[in-house]
Design a protein around this nucleic acid. Structure first.
Lengths: 345, 345
DNA sequence: AAAAACTCAGAAACCGATTACTAAAAGAGG
DNA sequence: CCTCTTTTAGTAATCGGTTTCTGAGTTTTT
């Protein structure tokens, strides 16, 4: 294993000083003769010179890196967000570091600390940690952060929220407008802001229509994998059908749980949507692939990533430290899992 | 925005030298009196000291970071791989940087370069770039790499391969053993090693059984998103049904395409598996969520991540530079999309 | 009581880059 | 021919840590 070639090695080979080499190789507009430029460029290429970013970043105090902290990369919603973030970052020559908190507050805090240590100046995070003291400290030391998806109750932070309450309301309203009156809501634990908001939206729509809400909450574990969510969708549907035999529609708090609900209904010989309508929430791509294709509320995930990254880069570059709060709106995606119920049924 | 507090600031506050502070804060076993230890630790905490990793890493020439380069994070197969990698990395206090090449060789090479510049010493990559000269150069300069999923034809690199050929053979054989004789194979372009291998496995099983292969290749674009794969599955199924009306089973080269195939069959009023059997490839979680649950060939994705990371860390720590090649075996996951065909039909 | 060994702390070099400052050489103007 | 710019290159300080080396003070050995 050879010693890595440094800027000084290149300088020696080119009979120049490291200062000149630095100016050439980092495209500074400092005056360097054309001959020197060519020579250094050529020699650096021949020697397979790879600049050491640690040295550069230490001196210039810029890492050109933004961090993203999300619950899980294997959730299609978040992977879409990341795609959006990366696209914008790439356009601006920024690098992106993605960390999965796996719903574990300690991991989240650990990643936050690590990023600060790595001199990351901007972070996009979907936080589940209750303890914001570390984050607050970082913000005071010049870090910038954008909260996405999950609200963080701090003044100093820009938020890109999604109107979960309205989404929950829209989904429920959609079912009501299709003649449904006995509508169950299947949700995972109401321990996160997003969950409680959707729930509120459901309750509001039901109460406005004078209907009695039927809510079933999954007591499942914290680890959230697709399989677990699918299973809890199946179980919640089972419970609902047993306790409320007269339901004509079920609203699930996310698409994968809706898949589970449909699975249970289908295995029980019930037809979707003819016997029961089902509506989901999230708008992941797989929703179009199941049978019947899932009607759902779409969150603008990719757009959220784009927007978050743009906002963050603005902050980093313009030193504009105003904190704003954007609210993205839900969109109904009508596919085939919801149908009109006749009045008498 | 305050100036960040450095190790020298802490030294001043504690009436000590930066050397001593460094020794305390980095848990060196260099002798430092208990009183000094306590004092420095306390002051550092009070001052919210955050060490600058750039300085540390520059001096020690270690980044404690491994890189992962994959085609796309939104492919569930790769996101499982990453989960495995991260788990092992976390146990060893390593950080993981994930990069999506998005099937673009230029992006892949760019990320490789960036990682080298950031002094990442170990990389796990699923490469699609033909040009291995950059990689070879990095390997000679002390970088370590593990190729997963896609073979790289270099001596100096350890490989964790998956036996695609056997998987293709097993899938086909499974259909044959269930009495099918007219079996179509739906695949995306045969431009990657994995694709050609599965294809070969299919051909081998067919020829051994004396059956005539029926292959339909998607000419779709390079951009591979789930939606695109789903659509091309739908289209391939359409073509197949028109050109070969007597098919009784279809084998798709990945699960999402199989979803597309099933969608087409279902919309045409054909029942799966009663009229046609379908088998997929990959074993993503969503396969259990569709109707009927998809029979498929499972790749050990998570295990691949675990293994790749363990192997890489061994290399990085033991300086053991032997290059080995591991071949992971496919596993048949029987669900409900394949059924036995009666002889006469 | 002197010598040897040990404990603990600090001074300063160093990692690989950037950059403020200095200086030599070349060209312009009188 | 001599001064005044202008152009181009180099010297050395610096970023925030780590670590080698040196040395002061204390304890143990003889």
């Amino acid at each position: 294993m050879k010693k890595p070639v440094t800027i000084h090695d290149i300088a020696k080979l080119a009979n120049a000083s490291s200062a000149t080499v630095s100016r050439v190789l980092s495209n500074s507009n400092y005056p360097v003769s054309a001959a020197m430029r060519e020579k250094i460029t050529r020699i650096a290429k021949e020697a397979n010179y790879i600049p050491n970013m640690l040295g550069k970043q230490l001196k210039t105090n810029t890492s050109m890196t933004i961090g993203v902290i999300i619950p899980s990369i294997s959730n299609p919603f978040y992977s879409s967000v990341i795609l959006g973030v990366e696209e914008i970052a790439r356009e601006h020559n920024y690098h992106v570091i993605v960390c999965n908190s796996l719903q574990n507050p300690d991991f989240e805090l650990g990643y936050l600390q690590t990023m600060a240590e790595k001199q990351v100046k901007g972070i996009i995070l979907s936080s589940i940690a209750q303890n914001t003291s570390l984050l607050k400290g970082l913000l005071q030391n010049g870090m910038h952060a954008i909260a996405i998806d999950q609200r963080i109750d701090e003044e100093e932070i820009s938020q890109i929220e999604f109107n979960y309450a309205k989404g929950g309301y829209m989904a429920t309203k959609h079912l009501i407008e299709h003649g449904h009156t006995r509508i169950g809501y299947a949700t995972s634990e109401l321990d996160r802001h997003s969950r409680t908001e959707i729930h509120q939206g459901y309750l509001k729509a039901m109460s406005e229509a004078g209907l009695k809400p039927v809510v079933e909450i999954s007591g499942a574990g914290k680890v959230f994998s697709s399989s677990n969510e699918f299973d809890s969708g199946k179980q919640l549907a089972d419970k609902m059908l047993e306790r409320h035999k007269d339901l004509t529609a079920i609203f699930a708090c996310n698409d994968v749980m809706a898949f589970g609900v449909i699975h249970t209904l289908t295995s029980r010989g019930l037809r979707v949507p003819d016997d029961l309508s089902v509506i989901g929430f999230d708008g992941i791509e797989y929703g179009q692939m199941i049978h019947p294709p899932l009607t759902t509320i779409k969150q603008p995930d990719y757009e959220m990533g784009i927007l978050a990254c743009k906002l963050l880069l603005d902050k980093l570059q313009d030193k504009d430290s105003s904190h704003l709060s954007v609210m993205l709106q839900p969109r109904l995606v009508e596919r085939a899992s919801v149908t009109t119920r006749q009045a008498g049924d």
